[in-house]
Amino acid sequence: MNYIDPHIHMISRVTDDYHRMARCGCVAISEPAFWAGFDRGSADGFRDYFHHLVEVEPKRAAQFGIQHYSWLCINAKEAENVSLSRDVIALIPEFLTKPSVLGIGEIGLNKNTPNEATIFQEHMDLAMKTDELILIHTPHLEDKLKGTRMIIDMLKNDPRVKPHRVCVDHVEEHTVRLALDGGFWCGMTLYPTSKCTPSRAVDILEMVGLDRIMANSAGDWGKSDPLAVPELILEMRRRGHPESAIKKVVHDNPLEFFRQSSRWQEPALRNES
């Protein structure tokens, strides 16, 4: 089955992963800007990173017939440095002309600090000014519920925000309804230990339905599985769920969300074998 991984950090993955993903049916991915595993020292480091996201990765993905899209921002962890964050936010507009950029992301909160909230709002101001889609990182573990509520407070506090143009990512059992009830899209991250397993993600789908929800691997430099979305497909099949339902979650829903981007270009369709 053709699928889309709407959140994966291919900059941290080897080329063989693209190959394996393509063999499993991956036709497109989107790669949000994130924390590199260390705090960068200057805005120039981000300029190089954004260049990598919009120029280098699309070419690497194209070798395997995978369409590569990206999202730009300074991540929540480095957003604690407000001065650096403002320099990075000022860089973003020059990259928003690139056709593969879907919007602003993954912005969000990490430890739910006032500085992180300030920079989250300033990213939203940019997204509203430039009419961009928004992809949101919600915090990990014990910070997730509080942080997700704070993020939704900020989204609802801004009358310019159109919920159907926002995806709240890394939702789990205790946060998925906060996102859906607010009218937002949401993403479940299939990630060992700290987020959702494929089984729990299918449990969530059985509880909340198939609308405005997608699944991703968030594969990165940590212990993660770039083939996590195919694992979800297998789990849904194991439970006897119809192919149409599976396709909606792993292909049609991300496509519906991405198509709202002002720069969206419809990729050539690959025939199902």
């Binding site: 006032p114 709002q121 939203m124 509203m128 519920l145 704070m150 407070d153 059992e173 729990r200």
Partner: peptide, 26 residues
């Protein structure tokens, strides 16, 4: 029911709805 949600909530920090929110700049 919803034991997984209950476990998630148990392992979560408290939320204060009156936290100081930043203001949008129009």
């Amino acid at each position: 029911p919803a034991k997984a949600q209950g476990v998630q909530e148990l392992f979560s920090l408290c939320y204060d709805p009156n936290w100081p929110k930043p203001s949008p700049r129009f």
